[in-house]
Structure formats: structure tokens, C-alpha cells
């Protein structure tokens, strides 16, 4: 892969930001720091590969809002959120919004590094096995609602006949949908299709 996987740090506190840069540099990880979400989105490298380290509490746009924006921008980077104080509802919400990890201040540096390494590895694997998450996301968006339903059913292991029965379609129509969605997602086998779908489920 051409660009090296980078840790993108977004934190409004300069001291924290610089200390994180120092930490990741100490273990020779490429790191980019941004003072705000907007700054990050304006950066051409924001599509990765790599992972994001976010502070939940930031002025202007907080971490949760940034996750929403990332999703609309189809930026499929793994995210590690850092929160000031334990807040289970916020963690749940962050998870639902697609953040892969959630870590509480004060942060144990080894713990943080371990999670970042894991996130980077996951990102690399995805890109290797499935492709650019942005492209994949674009492809998935092309699917019609019906095709999505059929895709869900396929991933769940249903046969065409069973799908036709549950969706009240003819087997032939199901077969058409299946062919169409495989074409749109540019996969050639059911195994690839399932792998892609499952991998996407783990991403924002």
C-alpha cells in the first residue's frame, strides 16, 4: 500500500495533542494532529489508511458529531474515542455511531497504544481483503432497498427459494436482485459477498 497507515489525533487541547504526538512518535508510528474536526476534514489525507483518536469533549464539534460527519463523508476509518469521565450512555452512543473503541481518561499509555495498533491492523486488513472503504461504501450505497434486503438474507445464509418466500418474491426475481447486487458490489462469489458485508458491519 502506498501511503503509510497514520494515527490521526483530534484534540482541542494543545498540550494533550502534543503529548499524544510525542507518544506515537516514541513508538515510531506516523501521526498527524488536528485541533478540531473541521481541520481534520479539510486535510487531504483524511481518508486514511490509519485510525482516528478523538476527544469526546471538544468545542464546536464534539467527537460524536464528528463520527456523524465521517459517516456522511464515507470516511471509513476506525475510531478510538477518549472521554473525560465515564459515561456509559455516551459510550453506547459512540459504539452505535461506529466508533470501534472507547477509552477513558486518565489514559494508560500502553492501553492506548495497544488499541491503536489493533485499529490500524484492522484497517489494513480491511483494505487488503475488501478494498478502499470509501469505494466499498459508495458501492453499497448504490444498492436498492430490495437488493439490501436480499443481501441481508444471503449473508444470513438463506437460499434463493427461502428468500423468495420470506420477501414474497419469485425465485427468479431474487436471482435477478442477487446478480445485480453482486455486480454493483463487484464481487464474484457468495463467499466474497459475505466477507465484504461482514467486514463493512464492523466499520463506521
Amino acid at each position: 500500500m502506498s501511503p503509510k497507515s497514520t494515527v490521526f489525533v483530534i484534540d482541542d487541547d494543545e498540550d494533550v495533542r502534543q503529548s499524544l504526538r510525542w507518544l506515537f512518535e516514541s513508538v515510531s508510528m506516523p501521526v498527524e494532529v488536528f485541533g478540531s474536526a473541521a481541520e481534520f476534514l479539510a486535510d487531504p489525507g483524511c481518508e486514511g489508511p490509519g485510525c482516528l483518536v478523538l476527544d469526546v469533549r471538544m468545542p464546536e464539534m464534539d467527537g460524536l458529531e464528528l463520527l456523524e460527519v465521517l459517516r456522511t463523508h464515507r470516511i471509513g476509518l476506525p475510531v478510538i474515542m477518549i472521554s473525560g469521565h465515564a459515561d456509559v450512555p455516551m459510550a453506547v452512543k459512540a459504539m452505535q455511531s461506529g466508533a470501534v473503541d472507547f477509552i477513558q481518561k486518565p489514559v494508560n499509555h500502553q492501553d492506548l497504544l495497544q488499541r491503536v495498533r489493533k485499529a490500524l491492523a484492522a484497517d489494513e486488513r480491511f483494505r487488503a481483503e475488501i478494498g478502499d472503504p470509501r469505494i466499498i461504501a459508495e458501492r453499497l450505497e448504490q444498492l436498492t432497498a430490495k437488493e439490501r434486503e436480499v443481501l441481508e438474507a444471503i449473508v444470513n445464509g438463506s437460499t434463493n427459494k427461502a428468500i423468495a418466500g420470506s420477501l414474497n418474491l419469485s425465485v427468479r426475481t431474487v436471482e435477478t436482485h442477487r446478480a445485480n447486487l453482486m455486480r454493483k458490489l463487484e464481487v464474484h462469489s457468495t463467499a466474497d459477498l459475505v466477507r465484504l458485508t461482514l467486514a463493512c458491519r464492523l466499520r463506521p
Partner: peptide
Amino acid sequence: AQPLMGISTYAGG
């Protein structure tokens, strides 16, 4: 917490 986090992170690095 902010400076503490900074301290901890610098120390960790």
C-alpha cells in the same frame, strides 16, 4: 484531567 493526561502521555512516551 487535561494536564494530567498530558503528563501521563509524555511519561508513557
